[in-house]
Amino acid sequence: MALEDRSFARRRLLTSAAAAGGAALLGGTAHAAEPRKKAWPDRFPLPDGFQPEGIAIGSAPFAYFGSLANGAIYRASLATGRGSVISEGPGAGHPAVGLKIDRHGRLFVSGGVGGDLRVVDSRSGRTERTYAVGGAFVNDVILTPRAAWFTDSFAPRLYRLALDRHGRPGAVTDVPLGGDWQQGPDFTANGIERTPDGSALLVVNVFVGGGTLMRVDPRTGTATAVDLGGAVIPNGDGLLLLGRVLYVVQQQLNLIDVFRLNAAGTRGTAIARITDPRFRIPTTAAAWGDRLYLPNARFDVEPTPGTDYDAVAVPQV
């Protein structure tokens, strides 16, 4: 089986913006909740055959979705649900997996089996930079004031893309993962976020303990298991932190587990579980106003050019 096919098959098997109050190292800013017309759709279509995975929402009410099929980027208006492809992508074998957008309109894209990181101008759709890091599956990304951090699902390391004070990307370095981190036989790391106080990173490890949230020191790569009071996240995919509330999308379980974290991100308490009959294996989440928006990846079906996809919105906790 080809590596690309094996990677996506393994994802199916294992799976059977930004918060306020960030501090110095990894702090961030969040847009204020905006008024939302009642008519705004809570479900809207994505292009047939698109194979969505990641989602990003910036300072305007538009959602950006990445395609596993060819790395294309689709932009949809949250007000109308209508959208269009703004970037055709680099083609088959170079998917767009995780996505984040900064305040300058730059999209940071995880290249999956393409083994690269990309920076795309959300206005023109032009790819500004491509970094070939050789990763087997570059999965998800989170932005901090001085870096974009990417997970690799098949290797115990993170990629750190340095950002200058204007958010412009610089060099990429590897940060090996140690401490409590254990690498599974193949697919291991998934979603990534930061702690509420901005001092560390949070990374999903689907191998350790049947699914564990790890707190990672960005300086050393040392990982420590987060105490979630016995809760496990076997299908943990995208992470979204709003204040001290962490949303963990458990994709093939068709639910979102919600935890309240302490400031340092060393402990969390389960406070809610979000389910919805419209979920068809959602993978990642982004926030606007009082809603969460999620693409349905439909990993339980064999994708074809005619397979239908959509995005859904649910209320925040």
Score class of each variant (00 low, 15 high):
Val317Tyr: 11
Thr275Gln: 06
Arg126Leu: 12
Arg165Val: 07
Ala155Val: 04
Asp217Arg: 15
Arg106Gln: 09
Pro185Gln: 10
Ala313Phe: 00
Val113Thr: 15
Gly236Leu: 08
Ser110Tyr: 01
Pro315Arg: 15
Ser199Ile: 05
Asp116Thr: 14
Tyr131Cys: 09
Phe8His: 14
Gly179Pro: 05
Tyr293Arg: 12
Phe279Glu: 02
Ala69Arg: 14
Val203Phe: 01
Ala311Ser: 05
Pro196Gly: 09
Thr195Asn: 03
Gly83Ser: 03
Gly191Ser: 10
Val314Asn: 04
Tyr74Trp: 14
Val113Trp: 04
Asp121Arg: 14
Thr212Gln: 12
Asn254Tyr: 02
Leu241Tyr: 02
Ile271Tyr: 03
Leu292Lys: 09
Ala32Ile: 13
Leu228Glu: 00
Leu201Asn: 01
Ser122Val: 11
Val113Ser: 12
Asn70Leu: 09
Val97Ala: 10
Ile256Asn: 04
Ala63Asp: 02
Leu242Asn: 14
Ile233Leu: 15
His104Met: 11
Val258Cys: 08
Ser84Ile: 11
Arg106Ile: 02
Ser67His: 03
Asp164Phe: 03
Gly198Cys: 11
Glu193Trp: 02
Gly178Asn: 09
Pro169Arg: 10
Pro176Gln: 04
Ile73His: 08
Gly28Cys: 13
Leu177Ser: 05
Ser16Asn: 11
Asn205Thr: 08
Leu163Asn: 00
Arg103His: 10
Ala33Lys: 14
Leu255Tyr: 00
Pro305Gly: 04
Arg123Phe: 08
Pro95Thr: 07
Arg6Glu: 05
Gly179Tyr: 05
Val208Thr: 15
Lys100Cys: 07
Pro185Asn: 11
Thr275Asn: 04
Gly268Arg: 07
His31Tyr: 06
Pro156Leu: 08
Pro169Trp: 01
Asp310Phe: 05
Asp186Thr: 13
Ala155Lys: 12
Asn70Thr: 12
Ala79Asn: 09
Leu253Trp: 04
Ser59Gln: 12
Ile233Phe: 14
Glu4Lys: 14
Gly238Trp: 01
Leu107His: 07
Asp174Thr: 15
Ala96Glu: 00
Phe207Asp: 11
Asp48Arg: 14
Gly91Val: 08
Gln51Met: 13
Gly93Glu: 02
Gly66Gln: 06
Pro47Asn: 09
Arg106Thr: 01
Phe65Val: 07
Pro315Asn: 12
Ala155Pro: 00
Ala313His: 01
Tyr293Cys: 06
Trp288Phe: 14
Leu239Gln: 01
Ala24Tyr: 06
Thr284Gly: 03
Phe44Arg: 10
Phe279Thr: 08
Arg168Val: 02
Asp48Pro: 06
Ala2Asn: 15
Gly306Pro: 01
Leu117Tyr: 02
Asp257Lys: 14
Asp217Met: 13
Thr29Asn: 10
Pro295Ser: 07
Pro295Ala: 04
Leu292Glu: 00
Trp40Arg: 15
Ala72Arg: 09
Arg43Gly: 02
Gly209Gln: 07
Asp227Asn: 15
Trp288Arg: 13
Thr224Lys: 14
